[in-house]
Amino acid sequence: MGSQKKTVPFAGTKEQEAALLKMIAECKDEKGALMPILQKAQDIYGYLPREVQTIIAREMEVPLEKVYGVVTFYSQFSLYPKGRYKVSVCLGTACYVKGAGNIFDELQVLLGIEDGGCTEDGKFSLESCRCIGACGLAPVLMINDDVYGRLSINELSGILAKYE
């Protein structure tokens, strides 16, 4: 379940909270307000952690579960912040048959996080993605804009070590 993923501790500012409350007050009486409110809240914080969802539920006078159910339904909403280095592993067909699944599993172990998670120091986040158009280099991963291809599992710790 999503909530058990490791993540960065919440560090919302007073300014962010004020902006959130103002935005909710403006939107909440409209019909079907929850979706736009969640989108705008994600614009403010970059993601939708429990603390933010709790405020939304309280202000809209709906159960927290109602908010959480919507957030987990749509893949555009994220419960977790992105790290400074965003690791994306292609799990498209070509990469997958070349062993991307094992690469992805190994990264989860090395980083101690699951798909969609972020290390507690905020350094790395990990996600799977679909074809990035480099099938000739399969299996492929990206760290921010850097592309690494023809990977083997034992290269991974060396690649991660390049970042700080």
């Binding site: 908010v67 159910g69 987990t72």
Partner: peptide, 22 residues
Amino acid sequence: SVGVIGANERGFETHIASPFGM
């Protein structure tokens, strides 16, 4: 008027539970 359970995630992962894995 309690609403502590709902449908979380989607597709094959859809399950009825409380928020945030509580």
